[in-house]
Simulated assay, not measured.
Amino acid sequence: MTDLNFPIYLLAWPFALTLAWMAGELIYRWIALPRIAVYALCGFVFGNLAAGDLPPSESDSFLLFANLAFGLMLFELGYRINLRWLRANPWIVVTSVVESVVTFVAVDTVATAFGTEPLSAALIAALAMATSPAGLLRVLNEQRSAGQVTERALHLSALNCAFGVFAFKVIVGIGVFQTSGDLAHAAASSLLVLVASSLLGALFGVAVPLWLRHVDNAGRDATLAFAIAVFLLVVVSHVFKLSPVLCALAFGIVARHRRIVLPPAQRNFGALGDLLSVLLFFVVASKLDWDHVTSGLLLGLLLVLVRALAKVLVCTVFARVSGISARKGALTGLALTPVAVFAVLLLEQAPRLGPDVFQSLAPLAAIALLLEVIGPLVTLCAVVFANETRTAREP
């Protein structure tokens, strides 16, 4: 590479991110399409046009920042989870368990029936269980949504993310054991990792509020302190090959119940969170390969429909016993559509834990791209139809 081309090369990512942000703002104003869907489309186009020109080192650096952005969103999701509400209404937990199991079985059955290898089908099903907190939170915060559908979607997302991580780690552990015969490695890739991740996140949830009380700046500096702690937590979890998802979720849940206030004005972590969200959705979509998307498009579309049907059906069936109407139950199921960011970032860890399964998951690439664009739009429609957006609540 010549010195003349080197400065232009360095500007590729910043210019692409800037253009994605500008496109997101314009299209949001023109047709109200969620900004994150536009960021994803721009990232997919950029990733496939520039794939041969970008070394892995630069792409990996941006992927680390994407994981940090995802960690902030997971922390915020955990921070908004009310464990007392779950204890008072255990049907929400029951709904999440049944919804996750039905989604797994349905997706795994369809994927296997269409010729997907058993291990790959199980991994796709495990990732399909979860709802991506990134897509869900950005849409809900952008619309300032509040109400029964919004709160249930947030709580169900936190629960099915935990179930999805558990299933994913166990399946990867089984794959490692089948490949290497190393039972200790397989065990470390599943249950032990989950326990350690939860404990580490809980430790941060206790330590950071204690520090804030000690310096007597809990109200003013809480947002900055939490952001720095999430960054540290995500990096530590990657170094020790733990689950950043569970670490950040546990951190947020424990911190909330330590009664440290995160100001409403700082949802999304202010301008820092907005910047990182552009990077998150752009970078994740740039990891999707065009060939994988096209080769798995038909099966991917079918699995998207099966996944959506499973979530809507279960949420509707359990709606009345959990205290809401069947209509709002169905809308809650629709709000759980986003999955792309969670799936791609979690799958990035699979080669480190064992078999290189990414090449055999073409339908997942198609699912990720479809739901990267459609998922936020479906969530938006769900909260609009539930009359829980800011515009709907204004007189």
Rank of each mutant, 00 (worst) to 15 (best):
T2D: 13
D3H: 15
F6H: 09
P7I: 03
Y9D: 05
Y9N: 07
W13D: 00
P14S: 05
L17I: 07
I27E: 08
A32P: 02
I36P: 03
Y39A: 00
Y39S: 03
A40Q: 11
C42W: 06
C42E: 09
V45Y: 06
G47I: 04
L49M: 07
L49I: 02
A50Q: 08
A51N: 06
G52L: 09
G52V: 06
P56Q: 14
L74E: 04
G78W: 15
R80D: 07
I81M: 10
I81P: 11
W85L: 01
A88R: 15
A88E: 15
N89H: 13
V93Y: 07
T95N: 12
V98A: 11
E99G: 06
S100P: 13
V102H: 08
V107K: 07
T109F: 11
T109R: 15
A113P: 09
A113M: 11
G115T: 11
E117C: 03
P118R: 14
A121W: 15
A122C: 01
I124R: 12
A125C: 10
A128S: 15
M129A: 07
A130N: 10
P133R: 13
G135R: 04
L137T: 15
E142F: 14
Q143D: 02
A146K: 15
Q148M: 00
A153P: 05
A158F: 01
N160F: 04
C161P: 08
G164V: 11
V170N: 03
I171T: 12
G173C: 00
G173M: 04
I174G: 04
I174L: 03
F177S: 03
L183V: 12
A184S: 11
A184T: 12
H185A: 01
S190H: 01
S190A: 13
L191E: 00
L191Y: 02
L191G: 03
V193Q: 03
V195R: 05
S198F: 03
S198T: 05
V208S: 01
P209A: 06
W211Q: 12
H214S: 08
H214D: 08
V215P: 14
N217Q: 15
R220Q: 12
A225D: 10
I228K: 14
I228N: 03
A229K: 14
F231A: 02
F231I: 08
L233H: 07
L233N: 06
V236T: 10
S243V: 00
S243C: 03
A248G: 02
A250C: 08
V254P: 09
H257C: 01
R258S: 05
P264Q: 14
P264Y: 05
F269W: 07
G270H: 12
G270C: 00
G273E: 00
D274Q: 13
D274N: 13
S277L: 00
L280F: 00
F281H: 08
A285I: 13
W290T: 01
H292F: 13
T294P: 07
G296M: 02
L302S: 15
L305S: 02
F318M: 14
S325P: 08
S325E: 06
A330P: 05
L331A: 05
T332Q: 02
G333Y: 14
L334W: 12
L336Q: 04
L346H: 05
L347I: 09
E348K: 10
P351D: 00
R352P: 04
L361Y: 13
L364Y: 12
A365R: 10
A365P: 14
A365W: 01
A366V: 04
I367M: 12
L371Q: 13
E372K: 05
P376F: 10
P376I: 13
A386Q: 12
N387M: 08
T389E: 02
T391Q: 11
T391H: 15
